[in-house]
Write a protein that binds this DNA or RNA. Structure first.
Lengths: 194, 194, 194, 194
DNA sequence: AATGAATGAGCATTCATTCAT
DNA sequence: TATGAATGAATGCTCATTCAT
């Protein structure tokens, strides 16, 4: 699906994500990347033709990450459990790489970059679809209440996840997202369970 | 609470919001503002001492907006109804001034501007608190289910609202937010009602 | 010699000198003057047609000041005593209005303003001439040593005075110029006396 | 002591000094430098991170210059001779690079740049100290009169030097500083000799 | 594969000054 | 006399990108 990355490209992506974590997307400049990589700005262009491709790479990285989250579904697990795991894995991923928070929630920044914006849209849609499927399954199995539209429920679940992660970021990662997240998950579970 | 704005300041804020709606926050430059106002860049500085103050003004505008939303609570209305109205009024506000979407959800952009970031944090907290109060009341009256933590319920409600509005923005305002929003509201209501 | 100043003009000059004392000549902007005067920038132009005229006014003020210093010579006083008094009066003047230091030693700033530069040149020449006359008289009376050229002695005396005052300014006016100055005067006297 | 300069940095410093000679420190803008160097403004920033560093570089250049002047003292030379040489070398340095006059005597301009002002202060102190030592030695050897305080004598000598050079600048370098300077030196010598 | 040098476009901001009211 | 509103020109600086070596 995605062309393999060279080592240097991977390094650049990681450096970029670190930069984003430290100073936000505004801190992601070619100059800063070069500095972090200990080589010149021109050298960056050997590995990525432009800055957009780097952001693209980060989004791909994120997509692969979430895809893995979604992919690891164990067949015989209840839908509720799947949603629970979904949250948990997201929390884990963000805890490990806080920069993802900045990237994934900054659609505003990609506003004028159609290519990037489209990718963000796509990722969100992919995720939404996946969640929706879980919900629909859960409703079929009578695990999840049937009186609600799966699409809206998806919005509720994703929205909750996003805001919670955002709050964690705005609090300067000042609480343990995985711990506090568990309680949030329980609340969600209570609401949607049959 | 807020120092009165001059006419010109109001015009600048509106021009700025239009610019944001059109090209995102990145499109908000002094030059663009000046162009839209049909005068020179230097003239902008007669009315706002710097760009941050303009963004500050927009945030204040948003805050006043939401405060009005929260303020118009009619006493003898059920908590569920209050939450419903909350959503509806927000949808209305955004429908009228789509730029608010860009401003209020781009905490990432203010990342390096403590002053602005703090204001965003404050507004979010204010709103959260207000919602939480409604929920707590609703739980006391047995309108809202008691088996869930009001704080998390607040996150769920706010998160849902935010994502929904964001989706509307990402869809280029391509659906009627107020109409589709009603269905979302109903879903929320179902979930939290006792 | 000089057209009479209006009250407002005098106020502007004083405000300007205060500004210079506080932040150097770079701190002398129309905006700052207006602020200090508690009226608008445009109002400044009622009283002075442009900024150069204000600086001109300050130079005139300085010139009048020094002229008074030179004018108060008491006829039957020895040349040495006259030079002593010259220093003392200068110290007094600077102690009272430290901004004069900034103004009188910033020929560099007037570099591109011929009008101002010429005035600075003129003032310096006037002063030099006056000192030189004292010296020549002193040499005639055998009070001052005759083996030195009065012109160069003038440069020595003026140069000493200037540097000393500059040092006082660079030390943030941190020593008592009049007190320490006395010792400097004595040194000078020793050197030039017959 | 000082980090080595690149060729381009040296060129920029020289271009800057030329600019200052031509139009004063006010004429030293990044734009002007770029023009003189025949490249763009942005290119300047490849070589100096900002304008202050350029001024800093000029001050360093001056300091190195004067240090060389002071360093070349020949051991078995009389103090009087040393002072004479001090003046001569300064005159030579200024004659070669008139811009130094503007830089070194414009403390006023650095007023708001602590970094630069401190450097100016430092250079002046260094120079003063060196002169004072010569004087003290001269007094020990009975070459220089003992009835005067070395500190004040230093002020007198430096002040004379400064004003003389300033006069030369104000006269648009219209006389031969080295020639006329000799006579000034002789006057100084007469005054301080035992 | 990487560097050094440079560009062009843009940005926020400042300043002296003008003018209608 | 003084204000409010505006201008034009400049300034220091940043950023993504290019290119010869």
């Amino acid at each position: 699906m995605q062309i393999e990355l060279t080592d240097r490209q991977r390094e650049i992506l990681h450096a970029s994500m670190e930069l984003i974590t430290q100073n936000g997307i505004q801190g992601l400049t070619i100059k800063n990347i070069a500095q972090k990589m200990n080589f010149t700005e021109a050298a960056v262009y050997r590995h990525y033709s432009n800055k957009i491709q780097i952001l693209n790479g980060i989004l791909d990285f994120f997509r692969n990450n979430t895809r893995q989250i979604f992919a690891t579904e164990i067949p015989n697990v209840s839908s509720i459990k799947q949603i629970e795991m979904l949250f948990k894995k997201h929390f884990m991923a963000f805890a490990q790489r806080p920069s993802l928070v900045a990237v994934i929630f900054s659609e505003e920044i990609f506003r004028n970059e159609t290519e990037l914006l489209d990718k963000v849209r796509l990722i969100m849609q992919e995720n939404a679809l996946f969640i929706q499927k879980i919900i629909e399954n859960g409703q079929k199995n009578d695990e999840i209440r049937n009186d609600v539209n799966p699409e809206y429920l998806t919005t509720i679940i994703m929205g909750t996840l996003r805001l919670f992660v955002k709050q964690w970021q705005l609090a300067d990662y000042g609480f343990q997202i995985e711990k506090k997240g568990n309680e949030l998950i329980n609340t969600i579970k209570l609401l949607i369970m049959n």
